[in-house]
Amino acid sequence: MTTFRALQVTMPQPKQFVRQVVERSIDDLPAGELLVQVAYSSLNFKDALSATGNPGVTRNFPHTPGIDAAGTVVECSDGRFAAGDEVIVTSYDLGMETDGGFAEMIRVPSSWAVKLPSGMSLKQSMMFGTAGLTAGLSVQELVEAGVTPDQGEILVTGATGGVGSLAVAILAKAGFQVTAATGKESEHAYLKELGATSVISRDEVTENSTRPMLKPRWAGVVDCVGGEMLAAAIKATRYDGVVTCCGLVGSPDLPINVFPFILRGVRLIGIDSAECPMPRRQTVWNKLASEWSLPQLETMNDEIGLEGLEEAISAMLAGSLKRRQIIKP
């Protein structure tokens, strides 16, 4: 194969962006030791921003989005992988300024790739994708900090989002009592299907949130929202509880005092999947393939081709996309 299909975003005029599926040459791919034939990718909000020219994600065009990719190694010039190995590539600069997974082929540094864990298919890896990795890292932090299922409720905010929904399912699989917070009343039954013990509104989390402290309730928190929601969750976390945060859709600001930290010993841990060290990344992927594998994973995803991305990207930006989108280039 010397050419391949890819979704390409061009900028024919300033602030005008055009998306179309094109034929590209492998020779045009960026430098890197690892050439991978992509079997699956997945659609993330960052991809939708890249595809519409958001300068906070991508500044150089033409460009192929896709921060996730899973496929088979075609060649690896530094010997880290062998031809035929199945790998997962997420995070770092993939799909941002480096051409990403919305294509049949990618070329990247070999240090960006994780060998596909035993017991997981390439398609399943992209059903998790960066969202699943982030959710898994959040749960791993709770576990390593000593939070156990017998200590009480774990709150997940933004629970219908990609990270939130997978966090609900992983926590339930790990035996935790999960309370899912969402502003979408129509999704309560879906969250219960994922394993949530109870579902509450966002307003219930933020009620009386201007107070310095709230009645202790949560043994742990996976926050995907930030802002007032995160502050309220911290204020209602029990003594020695642990809060992880990975999102800022609510706000990047944290309106809070130090009382929960110095009076209850609450610990706040930031989650970053982009530059996460490879050993930790591999640990979480191995858990997602084994003890955290999800029987309901298939029902959380729809499969589309490159031609289906235009509609899916528009739906994601409009907030009307209900299921994760798996792309088969």
Rank of each mutant, 00 (worst) to 15 (best):
S273M: 01
T283M: 09
E303C: 14
T206K: 04
L137V: 02
G227I: 06
E291R: 14
G146D: 01
V249C: 05
A231N: 08
C76I: 11
A167M: 07
K46Q: 06
N208W: 05
A51W: 11
T52M: 08
L166K: 00
D28I: 12
L309W: 08
T58D: 03
A6P: 01
Q8N: 10
L137K: 04
C245E: 09
W218N: 04
S118N: 09
P65L: 06
S121D: 02
L297F: 13
Q325F: 02
Q20A: 11
L263Y: 13
Q140M: 12
R5H: 10
R267L: 10
M316T: 13
L29W: 09
C245F: 14
I327W: 02
E141D: 08
Q140T: 08
L133H: 03
E311V: 15
V222T: 07
D302E: 15
D68K: 14
G53E: 12
L116K: 12
Q140V: 05
L122W: 08
L297E: 10
E275C: 11
G71E: 07
V18E: 14
F259V: 03
G227C: 02
L34P: 04
R324H: 06
M105Y: 15
P109W: 06
R59Q: 15
C245A: 15
G265T: 07
L321G: 03
G146K: 09
